[in-house]
Simulated scan of single mutants.
Amino acid sequence: MTLAYEPGDSVAHRLDPRTKLAVQVGFAVAAFAHTTPRGLVVATGIAAVVLAAASTSPVDSLLEVRYALPFLVAGPAVAALTLGPPWVALSEASGPALASYRVLLVLVVSTAYVRTTPVRDSRAAIQRTIPGRTGRLLGVGVALVFRFLPVLLADLRGARTAMRARLGTERPLVERMRIVAAAGVGRAFGRADRLGLALRARCFAWNPTLPALHLSRLDGPALLVAGGLLAWAAV
């Protein structure tokens, strides 16, 4: 699976991208403001509603962010280790575990946005929300990341598959990691060069004609949800 836009007719697909950005920002602020188990339980319920509105399975969302999971697990695991008896203190891992889970919820909600919003709509939402050259720069950056990241992930999967086909699984773990990383970095630089050439060949526009954005009746309740999340974070 790749973290990219998928056409559909869900509630989230029909929302204005600016509304979806507002909900995502509100959720992130609320999740970082309420770090207690009770607050994270409420945030989990909100995340489930967001995924349902986007017709996205929680399992699919977790698969999309699986590359971040080892880092989220490593934090609590390291915090639980001590230099003396009892060697493992689970009480020390509770805080980092809640923080990791909070980040995981934010990532899961972000997958719902990416899978329901075309790249051009995201760029239009950013450039029309943030005025001037700053908005154009952020819009271009977001568009390139959304288009480039799935390609890079596919390259890494291709390198790993090729290594396995050549009995690379019999090599030590460190060597396997080095081979995949080197192949991924090499392909990333090659794709970056081709991307720059393609942008010049197509007379890349700094301020192109972007799609029109319109708020609908569905955006009203969603904006209320975004406002409610920000108010909850301020309480």
Rank of each mutant, 00 (worst) to 15 (best):
Lys20Trp: 07
Arg171Cys: 05
Gly139Ala: 02
His34Phe: 05
Ala43Gly: 01
Gly39Phe: 04
Arg14Ser: 09
Leu173Lys: 04
Val114Leu: 06
Ala89Thr: 09
Ala79Lys: 08
Pro17Lys: 07
Arg14Asn: 03
Ile130Ser: 05
Leu144Asn: 02
Ala183Ile: 00
Val65Trp: 03
Ala89Tyr: 02
Val119Asn: 04
Leu153Tyr: 10
Val145Tyr: 06
Ala93Lys: 07
Ser91Val: 15
Leu105Gly: 11
Pro150Met: 10
Ser55Ile: 01
Ala162Thr: 09
Leu197Met: 07
Ala226Arg: 03
Val11Asp: 01
Arg194Ala: 15
Val78Gly: 01
Leu81Asp: 03
Asp9Arg: 13
Gly84Gln: 15
Val235Phe: 14
His13Trp: 04
Arg102His: 01
Val23Ser: 01
Pro131Glu: 08
Val151Thr: 13
Leu199Pro: 11
Ala192Trp: 14
Val73Gly: 07
Gln24Met: 12
Thr134Pro: 00
Ala192Gly: 14
Val78Leu: 15
Leu213Trp: 06
Ala181Leu: 14
Thr36Gly: 09
Thr2Lys: 03
Val42Arg: 04
Thr169Pro: 00
Ala43Thr: 00
Ala159Gly: 00
Asp60Tyr: 10
Leu223Glu: 07
Leu40Trp: 00
Met1Thr: 10
Ala77Phe: 08
Ala30Pro: 02
Gly196Phe: 12
Val145Gln: 04
Val140Gln: 02
Pro76Phe: 11
Arg147Ser: 14
Ile46Gln: 02
Ala162Val: 07
His214Ile: 05
Pro37Gly: 11
Ile126Ser: 08
Arg191Pro: 04
Ala47Gln: 03
Val88Phe: 13
Ala47Phe: 02
Gly84Thr: 15
Met1Tyr: 05
Gly8Gln: 02
Leu15Thr: 04
Gly220Asp: 03
Leu3Ile: 12
Leu229Thr: 00
Val41Glu: 04
Val106Ser: 05
Tyr113Gly: 13
Ala52Ile: 08
Gly228Ala: 14
Ala68Ser: 13
Met1Ala: 11
Arg14Lys: 11
Phe189Ile: 11
Leu72Thr: 06
Leu215Gln: 02
Thr82Tyr: 02
Ser122Pro: 06
Ala181Gln: 06
Ala192Arg: 10
Thr117Pro: 08
Val59Met: 12
Val185Cys: 02
Arg38Tyr: 06
Ala192Pro: 09
Met177Gly: 08
Gly45Leu: 12
Gly190Asn: 06
Val42Thr: 08
Gly84Leu: 12
Leu15Ser: 03
Thr209Ser: 15
Leu215Pro: 01
Ala80Ser: 13
Ala226Ile: 07
Trp206Phe: 15
Pro58His: 06
Val109Ile: 09
Ala48His: 06
Asp16Trp: 00
Leu105Met: 12
Arg133Ala: 11
Gly196Glu: 14
Arg133Phe: 06
Ala165His: 01
Ala231Glu: 00
Arg38Val: 14
Ala192Cys: 13
Phe148Asp: 02
Gly190Thr: 11
